[in-house]
Design a protein around this nucleic acid. Structure first.
Length: 240
DNA sequence: GCGACAG
DNA sequence: ATCTTGTCGC
């Protein structure tokens, strides 16, 4: 699928924050789509211990960084049957900075999304949506670039306050930032840590929660995320 | 200055 | 994210 190039990626962290501040104004939290049939999940992985150095004598100079891998998996929502799976790889040098994760992982994710043939109605990402210091986490950012509904489904908290969540599957409590609800802490399975769900783009929180619950198959994480993670990790470590 | 901090 | 052992619960 195709995506928009709204800004450059080779920027410093200060410029990255400025870009986020500008893009945040474009995020839509209204769910226009009525029927979600195709759902996709994506994830990124890499080997933290090895730094790659790739000499390019010609034009672009020397590239250094780590080899990153991304995968996108597409499912039919009704049956949760997988219809497509792709991977992509590339060198990444932007460091991990809380709040700037999208500048580290988005380029490789977009490379993977460019490969898929199907046209998902909604995309789940292992990250935050609007539950972010500048209101634009990785899921929101990707949603803008792909112009698709996206949901952030993170394993831990980045920002926001919340109360304890009921133990039963489906229980949740609102995640708030200065009295504003930016997401939900959702129990996707009994007796396991809840996940942090926040709408990314072109979707509302209620719909997001429903889709996350619907795509969970007895596991803590939704199936698209879980399987995308398994594949990308295998690819990164080169194991079977 | 101190603590917090998606992956 | 990744490095790690045993251990509790369904």
């Amino acid at each position: 699928m195709k995506y928009q190039k709204l800004h450059p990626w080779n920027v410093d962290y200060k410029r990255a924050a400025e870009i986020q501040g500008r893009l945040e104004k474009s995020i839509v939290l209204i769910c226009a789509a009525k029927n979600f049939k195709i759902i996709a999940g994506a994830d990124v992985s890499y080997l933290p211990t090895r730094t790659i150095r790739e000499g390019k004598r010609s034009s672009t100079g020397t590239k250094k960084g780590k080899m990153f891998y991304a995968s996108v998996m597409v499912f039919e929502l009704k049956t949760m049957e997988r219809v497509e799976a792709v991977t992509a790889s590339g060198i990444v040098d932007f460091p991990y900075i809380p709040g700037l994760l999208s500048f580290r992982e988005s380029p490789i994710l977009l490379k993977a999304f460019a490969k898929i043939k199907s046209n998902p109605d909604v995309i789940i990402l292992d990250a935050q949506g609007i539950a972010h210091p500048r209101g634009i986490g990785l899921a929101s950012h990707i949603g803008l670039l792909l112009d698709k509904p996206t949901i952030g489904c993170a394993k831990t908290r980045l920002i926001g306050d919340y109360n304890e969540v009921g133990e039963e599957m489906g229980c949740y409590s609102p995640l708030t930032v200065q009295d504003k609800v930016v997401g939900a802490v959702l129990r996707t399975r009994k007796n396991v840590k809840p996940v942090f769900v926040s709408p990314g783009h072109k979707i509302d929180l209620k719909t997001s929660i429903g889709l996350i619950l619907k795509s969970c198959r007895g596991c803590r994480l939704p199936e698209p995320i879980r399987q995308a993670h398994n594949l990308v990790k295998k690819t990164a470590t080169g194991k079977e």
